[in-house]
């Protein structure tokens, strides 16, 4: 542990300020609370919003898990874990169920979260209306007036042009019938996991200096139309080549030798856990 820095890197005043913004965000689900984002020792755009939330929340008893695009061992997840563990000495885990704080870039884990956990999502662009309105001053007004026709029109135009909604990750959601929110670039597959989730979900955008939240058991509805319902990514008839799981988000990979496409769990720790269970069962 690096004792040249304060516990969890920040001075206590900075932590307090981030916690205040977080409390406000929890009190107004889906509303983007501005905060004076600090410069971090990792790149702006590399998860500094999530990292600031994690560092402001973490205590000595916490157990941390960090994933990046589903993987615990992805370069950036490793780098973030290293920084937090260097400045706090807390325990690190890969197991979703053992973690008390899970910082994630662009995935909600496959293992359901519980009420004792906090999921911290890293957000690159927190403003769901930015696509059609570049000005921050204007989008603030649109949110205040609940004027979301632009968001619906964006989806409508996609249907007119391409025959379906073409949002990739980051499909906008309505929070508790009030705020339209960018769920961070989680795949559409994960949007439904936000609805009525038992865990507290916090979203942090470091570069854009915003914190927002989905408190436990909040209603989250992905924007769609009656005749064009929202659809997640489909993996029908496909399963993980390693553990055989179905109904999870799969990575599409190509076998270099045969040129065949195959699939594998995107959530690597989930995949490992299933494999371990299978092995144990086999040994017994």
């Amino acid at each position: 542990m690096n004792t040249a820095y304060n516990f969890a890197f920040f001075d206590e005043g900075s932590k307090r300020e981030i916690r205040r913004a977080t409390l406000k965000a929890i009190a107004i689900p889906g509303y983007q609370v501005p905060f004076a984002s600090r410069e971090m020792p990792i790149g702006r755009g590399w998860g500094t919003g999530g990292l600031q939330l994690t560092l402001s929340l973490i205590g000595k008893e916490d157990v941390l898990k960090v994933i990046d695009q589903g993987s615990d061992e992805s370069v950036n997840a490793v780098s973030i874990k290293k920084l937090v563990s260097d400045t706090t000495g807390v325990q690190i885990t890969d197991h979703t169920s053992r973690a008390t704080i899970i910082q994630s870039r662009h995935r909600i884990p496959e293992v359901p979260l519980n009420k004792d956990q906090i999921l911290v999502l890293q957000v690159p662009l927190p403003e769901p209306l930015r696509y059609f309105e570049p000005s921050e001053h204007e989008t603030k007004k649109l949110h205040a007036e609940k004027e979301y026709s632009g968001a619906w029109l964006m989806l409508f135009e996609q249907i007119m042009k391409y025959g379906s909604m073409t949002t990739g990750a980051d499909h906008p959601v309505m929070v508790h019938d009030r705020y339209v929110m960018a769920p961070s670039p989680i795949p559409r597959f994960d949007n439904s996991k936000m609805n009525e989730n038992e865990a507290l979900i916090l979203l942090g955008a470091g570069r854009e200096k915003k914190i927002y939240a989905v408190p436990p058991f909040t209603k989250i509805v992905s924007l769609d139309f009656e005749d064009y319902p929202f659809e997640g990514e489909s993996f029908d008839g496909k399963c993980c080549r390693l553990c055989g799981s179905e109904g999870v988000f799969l990575d599409e990979l190509i076998d270099e030798a045969t040129g065949e496409t195959y699939y594998q769990c995107n959530d690597t720790s989930y995949c490992c856990e299933i494999l371990n269970e299978v092995e144990k069962a086999g040994v017994n």
Partner: peptide, 29 residues
């Protein structure tokens, strides 16, 4: 400087999930 270089350089990070998601949309259309 820190904001612009940070966001430009974040493009080097893996975007496997986001790309898979976009791929799914492209296939559907």
């Amino acid at each position: 400087s820190v904001e612009s270089t940070g966001f430009i350089s974040h493009l080097k990070m893996p975007h496997y999930v986001t790309f898979q998601s976009k791929l799914d949309s492209v296939r559907k259309t």
